[in-house]
């Protein structure tokens, strides 16, 4: 009797779980194409903005096609637009993945800009890494060596970036991810041959 009751309980949870998984898979397959389209749009419009090329919601695909060159070597992809080299990066943040793009000058020596495409850091604290006011501090920093976080002083050296108070780990994660991305790009594009 007791055993039967327990088996029924287990059966209930299993059936509920199966129905739930089926529903989630249906939802996933419904949203997948739209999500893919959105990610493509997000990347292209951000690359165009990073290269200072004007675009509108209607024509960004054509503008991208005309003005941006996509290149791949050794499994690494980068974009060239108006003699700027743009590379997409992805790394672990404090809670989730940080995705973004980093733009380097034509000699691959300095960072022109960093843009965040998506992040899941703590709202109100770590998510300030996506703010333009913070990202502008990356401008002009070196791409030739790993960047470091300036924690107890103002970042002045070329390889230092300011930390955000209350969000040290998120700033650290971004600095590490950006450094890795620039390092990777420079390793593949030795002596600036792109």
């Amino acid at each position: 009797m007791n055993l039967k009751r327990k088996l029924l309980d287990v059966l209930f949870i299993v059936v509920l779980g199966t129905v739930s998984v089926a529903l989630l898979m249906a939802a996933q397959s419904y949203s997948a194409p739209a999500v893919k389209r959105f990610r493509e749009m997000r990347l292209k419009t951000n690359v165009l903005t990073a290269a200072d090329i004007p675009w509108t919601q209607a024509d960004f695909r054509d503008v991208f096609e005309q003005r941006v060159r996509e290149e791949t070597r050794d499994g690494l992809t980068w974009y060239v637009a108006d003699s700027l080299v743009i590379h997409e990066f992805k790394g672990r943040g404090l809670w989730g993945t940080i995705e973004g793009i980093v733009t380097l000058d034509s000699a691959l020596n300095h960072i022109v800009s960093v843009r965040i495409l998506s992040q899941e850091e703590t709202p109100g604290l770590g998510d300030r890494i996506k703010d333009a006011e913070y990202l502008v501090t990356y401008r002009g920093k070196t791409a030739a060596e790993p960047l470091e976080l300036a924690m107890r002083h103002k970042a002045e050296a070329e390889n230092e970036v300011d930390a955000i108070s209350g969000a040290t780990l998120s700033s650290q994660a971004l600095v590490k991810t950006v450094s890795e991305a620039t390092g990777r790009l420079r390793a593949v594009l030795k002596d600036g041959q792109w």
């Binding site: 739930s20 989630l24 939802a27 949203s31 999500v35 959105f38």
Partner: peptide, 18 residues
């Protein structure tokens, strides 16, 4: 939790898609 999270994820996917 199973029932709630299923519907929450459906809402999340719906917003992401539309």
């Amino acid at each position: 939790m199973i029932v709630t999270s299923t519907f929450v994820i459906i809402v999340d996917q719906f917003l992401k898609a539309n």
